[in-house]
Design a protein around this nucleic acid. Structure first.
Length: 242
DNA sequence: AGGGCACCTCGGGCGC
DNA sequence: TGCGCCCGAGGTGCCC
């Protein structure tokens, strides 16, 4: 088995998963899909329809938006969220099925991409590529924190007039995409801002500090391969930094 | 808008 | 020491 998972995936960990997946499944053509736990699949909600939609299609690329993985099949995109414990691995067709394997993508070359998720929180949605930007999970996402468009000015504008506490707002994905509990705590600590401060009570100086802390925290974690990445290649484990 | 809870399973910790 | 129960882990989505 070759694969990659992270204990609590936030943006840097999902990006590492994306990169690994891209290497493992790029150009592979889906022969069939086995949805073993219907709950994971949300759109189409019928496992049969979900499976049929992908059969015969080839993975052009693997992208990411916030914490969502995007398997790009040309006209269709599979949007996958790992939530807390979702993980992917590439297997040979004959490999024993590991516990908590909920979705199996069988390729025409005899390999299989398997999705495992102990807590069954992960989700998969298929959208037409041309409706992806307006799709419910992605449409409401804030800017990518490592994108040049995420400037202190943009950050300030997004938070303007928000009376809620800063930590829940940052966890909400609508102000900035990809942050989870660990990196929000880290960024707030670095910026020396209390998590329960009302967003609209933050000074310009504090907002600039917070913006800088978010970017620095994610950039450093990204360089190290995420805070808690473990990768497995042919059964041999290796730690991924931190 | 924003707070709160449900979703789900496992494992750690604690009490008896 | 051993067993069993309870709760926390944490991102989203829905309800109020």
């Amino acid at each position: 088995m070759q694969g990659v998972f992270s204990k609590m995936p936030e943006l840097p960990e999902v990006e590492t998963v994306r990169r690994t997946l891209s290497r493992l499944v790029h150009g592979k053509t889906v022969a069939s899909v086995d949805v073993r736990l219907a709950r994971i699949v949300r759109r189409p909600a019928e496992p049969e329809a979900f499976a049929r939609a992908l059969e015969g299609l080839t993975i052009q690329s693997v992208g990411r938006r916030g914490k969502y993985l995007l398997f790009e099949f040309g006209e269709l995109t599979l949007v996958s969220h790992l939530r807390m414990e979702g993980r992917y691995g590439l297997y040979a067709a004959g490999d024993a099925l590991e516990p908590h394997t909920h979705v199996v993508f069988r390729f025409d070359d005899g390999t299989e991409l398997r999705y495992r998720d102990v807590r069954q929180f992960g989700t998969m949605d298929i959208y037409r590529a041309d409706e992806l930007a307006e799709a419910p999970p992605l449409a409401a996402l804030g800017p990518e924190p490592l994108d040049p468009a995420f400037t202190p000015q943009a950050f300030r504008k997004i938070l303007a007039g928000r009376s809620g506490k800063i930590k829940p707002l940052l966890l909400g994905q609508e102000c900035v995409a990809g942050l989870g509990n660990i990196y929000v705590d880290e960024a707030l600590f670095r910026a020396r801002i209390h998590p329960e401060r009302a967003a609209d009570s933050l000074t310009r100086r504090e907002l600039a500090r917070l913006h800088e802390a978010i970017v620095a925290t994610l950039a450093e974690a990204g360089g190290a391969g995420g805070s808690s990445i473990q990768s497995y290649v042919k059964g041999e484990g290796g730690a991924g930094g931190f």
